[in-house]
Every structure is written in structure tokens, then in C-alpha cells.
């Protein structure tokens, strides 16, 4: 009977699930809202995975990792991101993971080991939640933000570190009748400039992952402009941490077999 491995990334906004087989091939992926009070949707997905695949090991990651009782191991999303991206791209790199409430910058070699990392713990400016709040104040539809920004050459940013005060700041742009495509690009520049203040190895290529890049692909262009470096966005960048978790679930299962075979 074939063996399968499951990764579950319980993030602040969404819960992502990936199932892989013994060759690391992705067999199944799904995504549900984390804070959905109706737990049935996630329960249905888990039941489906259980019935369709012979899952031998589960790794949980993300903020909710401690709460997923069926997991065999828990690993941080920083490690999972590093393992997930490195499995697909085994080279030295910087990973920028922009999630719902945080930004993580990870330096990693080709083997997936975390060499260095940074994570915001003081405020959530420049994250997915920041984007939602600012776009709402600017009355810009989130789904069109990327397309709008691509039509602009605007080069200004919002300076405030506080998301709420940044909303006040964008009102000034609206009073000045800044066109909506410029507003969109200005919001993206603000996010990228915040990332640029974080210590990063300038010689390494950048891999963008997380929910924000999944839905705002134009950010890649701004990152390229700012960092003057090769920028890669893996396929399904929002799912990569759950993929990394699935890889670690597989490694865990293999090490258990090794231990068992010793006795």
C-alpha cells in the first residue's frame, strides 16, 4: 500500500493542506479560512484526505500548529518555508514570506536549513492585514489592486509604521486626487520598502511566498525594482509552507522506521 504524508499550515488567515507521496509529488492541496466558526469544512477535508490516502505521518505548522492534535510533529512555519522552497529550488537564497499578520525573511542554503531569519513582532504594518485595511480606506477593490498598480509609475510610499495612521496618510493622497492606479502602486511600494529595511544578503536570489504574493503578483515587479535581484515566485506560493510541512512529515516517518529497524 502506497504511503502518503500530510502537511497542515494553520496560518492567521487561512489553513492550508498538502498531501505528498513517497516521491514528494503533490497529490492533494486545499485551503480553508482558519477562523471560520463552522469547523465542518475543515473536518470534511480531513475526512476526505483520510479516506483517499494512506497517511502515515502528519506535520503541523503555522500559528495554530499546537492545536492540531492529530499531528505527529510540529515545526515552525519558518523551517517549513525553508524546507518547502529548498525542496523545489535547492540553492542558497532569501525567502520573503508575507502572510496575513507577519513578514518573515529567511536566509537558507540549498539543504533547507535555516541560516538566519527575521520576523516582525512589534507591529503588523506591511502584511496582508495592512493591505486589506489600506485598500479599504482607498476604496480600491483588493482583487484589482495588482492590475491597477501595473499601470502606474508612481514612486511615493506611506511612511507611518502604524496601519491605522497609514490609513489617515492615504486620505491625503485621496484629497490630492491621486489616481487609483497610483494609490495601488504606492501601497505596494510601502510594503516593499518596509521589507527593504530588514537585514538581507544582497547577493542571493529572492523567493517570494505567502498569501500576499499569491493574490498580488505585481509585488514581484516592485521587489525586482527595489532589490535589483533575481526574484522567483514558486507555483502556489501560499501553499509552500504546508508542502514543506509534508516533506518534514515524510522525513519524520523515515527516521521512525530507522529507529524501529535498530531494535
Amino acid at each position: 500500500m502506497s504511503k502518503y504524508y500530510q502537511g497542515i499550515d494553520i496560518g492567521s488567515s487561512y489553513t492550508k493542506l498538502t498531501v505528498i507521496d513517497e516521491t514528494n509529488r503533490i497529490c492533494y492541496q486545499d485551503i480553508v479560512k482558519t477562523m471560520n466558526r463552522d469547523k465542518q469544512e475543515l473536518a470534511n477535508i480531513l475526512t476526505k484526505i483520510k479516506s483517499d490516502y494512506n497517511i502515515v505521518s502528519i506535520c503541523a505548522t503555522g500559528y495554530g500548529r499546537e492545536h492540531f492534535k492529530d499531528a505527529h510533529i510540529n515545526k515552525t512555519e519558518i523551517y517549513c518555508a525553508s524546507v518547502g522552497v529548498s525542496t523545489l529550488f535547492p540553492e542558497a537564497k532569501s525567502i520573503i514570506d508575507i502572510g496575513g499578520e507577519d513578514i518573515k525573511v529567511i536566509k537558507t542554503g540549498g539543504d533547507g536549513k535555516v541560516d538566519d531569519f527575521y520576523m516582525n513582532t512589534k507591529c503588523a504594518a506591511g502584511t496582508g492585514t495592512f493591505l486589506i485595511e489600506i485598500a479599504e480606506r482607498a476604496e480600491l477593490p483588493l482583487a484589482r489592486l495588482s492590475e491597477l498598480a501595473s499601470k502606474s509609475n508612481f514612486d511615493k510610499e506611506l511612511n507611518s509604521f502604524c496601519t491605522v495612521f497609514a490609513k489617515t496618510e492615504i486620505m491625503k493622497w485621496i484629497f490630492d486626487e491621486v489616481p487609483e492606479q497610483d494609490l495601488a502602486r504606492g501601497i505596494y511600494i510601502s510594503i516593499v520598502n518596509r521589507i527593504a529595511k530588514i537585514r538581507m544578503d544582497k547577493t542571493l536570489p529572492i523567493f517570494l511566498i505567502g498569501g500576499v504574493i499569491q493574490y498580488h503578483p505585481f509585488l514581484k515587479t516592485i521587489v525586482e525594482e527595489k532589490f535589483q535581484q533575481r526574484v522567483v515566485v514558486p507555483e502556489n506560493p501560499q501553499m509552500i509552507n504546508s508542502f514543506g510541512a509534508a516533506i518534514l512529515a515524510k522525513k519524520h516517518a523515515e527516521s521512525e522506521i530507522k529507529i524501529a529497524s535498530k531494535y
Binding site: Y63, T76, I78, Y79, K113, F117, M119, T121
Partner: peptide, 18 residues
């Protein structure tokens, strides 16, 4: 008020993994 528990836990656990 100056301490974010969830984020700091992730940082510490990543560090230990490292």
C-alpha cells in the same frame, strides 16, 4: 503591551530548530 507572545514563540522555536 510590548510583548507579542505568538510571534515570539515562533521565533524562539525556529531558533531552537536552528
Amino acid at each position: 503591551r510590548f510583548y507579542s507572545e505568538g510571534q515570539t514563540t515562533t521565533k524562539i522555536e525556529t531558533f531552537i530548530e536552528q
